[in-house]
Structures are given as structure tokens and as C-alpha cells.
Design a protein around this nucleic acid. Structure first.
Lengths: 146, 146
DNA sequence: GTTGCATAGTTAGCATAGCTAATGATTAGC
DNA sequence: GCTAATCATTAGCTATGCTAACTATGCAAC
């Protein structure tokens, strides 16, 4: 049927697809009323459990002052709470409130539903192929230089 | 070997992989010294040819005032130029300058090189699989409701 | 051709989110 | 106990998103 794709072509396709996919799922988040940076941080807090502010900053690849201000807003809106670490009183421990947890679960299920809708018309073999492709890429992203 | 993945699992994997992949390639862009929104707009201008401001706004999924200001910055930095459309004098046509084109090509080759490095250890069959997976997803993203 | 509506773009003003530099508080090393 | 390192915050800048209000132009109806 078709000739084997060059690595360059495949790289371009993969990049373009990932870009459009992210755009597609992120559109769902607007309904939650929590802006993107805050939602992303909240996700780490809810699903990753309690962490320090600096660990959060690392996870989100932003600088501590940026994360500090994001936490300000999340605290103000009652989605997380700040506590000073008993072991190291310089450190701040961030925990999700019940409200924060609830909103995050809503968000996740909205996004998953959206993606499932996208995958709905696909056949068993195609789902299987997407699954293996994700595995391959994830593995390289974990082991590569970055 | 392994039992067939549920659609839910696959959806989660695909989402997570796309997210990490975008993070991986975007890191390259910092070296260009052009902030993300401007770079993305410049990409549409360089590779998509001359367009009006409102078409650009649609392509980038932002409102016209946002695009207007992005263009302000790109013009100020000599990367694009504004011209009024002769046919419809309300309309503004945006074109890339030589400098803008040069920088964008640099950016593209940096990102492609980065992705090629990632795909480098993969075998022929794995590349082929990624290629087909991208095709499948792209097709759904094009034909789906969004 | 003028009246009136629609469309393209800009301006003004606000919120969000990124950064560096500088500061305060606490801990760790010696 | 002093010094250096670490964690978080504050201040102040840039960038990027939005809506509302405005200007200028085009188009349609009469």
C-alpha cells in the first residue's frame, strides 16, 4: 500500500498530532472556571498527594515565585491549604481541600470523556495501536536526555 | 503477552504522552528568544503564507485584540510587516520579513532535530507504528466535533 | 446617495502567569 | 555559634489572555 515513512515525516506528524490533541482536550477545562496554570498545579496536588511548594514548582517546571502566587490564588479560592512543615519550618506543605479535590475529579472525568468520544469510532486494533505507540513514546521520553 | 488495554487506559496514556511530548519539544524554543505566543503566530505566517489578522486569530484560537498585540510585537522586532488589503481596506495583511522567516526556519529545525533525537533509538517497525498512530489520531481530530 | 447595519482592527483596562532580584526565616555544616 | 545554604515570599517587570468600547470601512436597501 504505502512506502515506509521517513523519520523526518514521522517526527513532524507526531508533533503536529500531539499539538492538536492537547488543544482538543484543554478546551474542556474552561468550563471548570479555574485557569490553566492553577488547574495544572491542582492536578499535581490532588493526584500526587501533599508536597512542598518547591517540589510543586519543579513538577510544573516553573520558578518558586510563580508557584507561590499560583498557591495564593488556590488558597484564596478555597481549593488548597498551606501548612508549615513541622520537621522543616522553612518548608510549606500544600494539601487539597475537599472542594479542590471535587473540582479536580470533575475536570479529569470531563477530559477523559472528551478523549473517549474521540476514540469511540476506532476499532479494537486501532486502539491497540495507539496504546503501543503511547508506550513507545513514553518510554523514550522517560529514558531520554531531558 | 499482554491483555488488550481498555479504552479508558489508552485515553489516559495517549493524553499523558502528548502532554510530555509537547513539554519536551517546547523547551527548544526558549533559545530563539521569541516568546511562545509570538513564535506560534510567526509559524502560521511563515508556513501558511500571508493572511489577515482575523484569520490568524482564528488559526491561533485567540481573540482579535490578542492577535493585534502579538503582531505589534512581531512588527516592532522586525519579524513581520503589516499592510492594508487593497481589496478591503478594513483588512490587514500580515507577511513575514526575511528575518522572521530565517528565525522560524531555525526554530523548526531545532524542534525537528530534538524529536529526531528522541526517535533515534527506535526500530523501523516502531517508527512505522508511530506514523500510523499519528494518522489515526489526526484523522479523528479532523473529522470529530470541535 | 444616504441611512443603517455588519465586519476588521485597534485601544483601554483588567486578570493570569512567567521571570529575576532582593529579603526574611530557618536549617545545616563546621 | 558563625557562616553558608535552602525555602518561601515580595516587588516589579514582561507576556498573553479576555471584554467593552471605539474607528473605519464595506455592503445592502431604499
Amino acid at each position: 500500500m504505502s512506502k515506509p515513512p521517513s523519520r523526518e515525516e514521522t517526527a513532524r506528524k507526531v508533533h503536529s498530532t500531539a499539538l492538536h490533541l492537547m488543544r482538543y482536550v484543554r478546551a474542556q477545562d474552561i468550563a471548570l472556571g479555574v485557569p490553566p496554570a492553577r488547574l495544572s498545579a491542582l492536578s499535581v496536588i490532588v493526584f500526587g498527594g501533599k508536597t512542598s511548594l518547591s517540589d510543586l514548582a519543579k513538577a510544573e517546571q516553573v520558578r518558586p515565585p510563580t508557584m507561590s502566587r499560583i498557591i495564593d490564588a488556590l488558597v484564596r479560592d478555597g481549593l488548597v491549604k498551606r501548612e508549615t512543615d513541622k520537621k522543616d519550618r522553612r518548608s510549606v506543605i500544600i494539601t487539597a481541600t475537599e472542594k479542590g479535590t471535587r473540582i479536580m475529579h470533575q475536570g479529569r472525568s470531563r477530559r477523559e470523556k472528551r478523549l473517549l468520544d474521540l476514540l469511540q469510532p476506532l476499532r479494537r486494533e486501532e486502539i491497540d495501536l495507539l496504546d503501543r505507540a503511547s508506550e513507545i513514546l513514553s518510554k523514550e521520553l522517560r529514558t531520554g536526555t531531558h
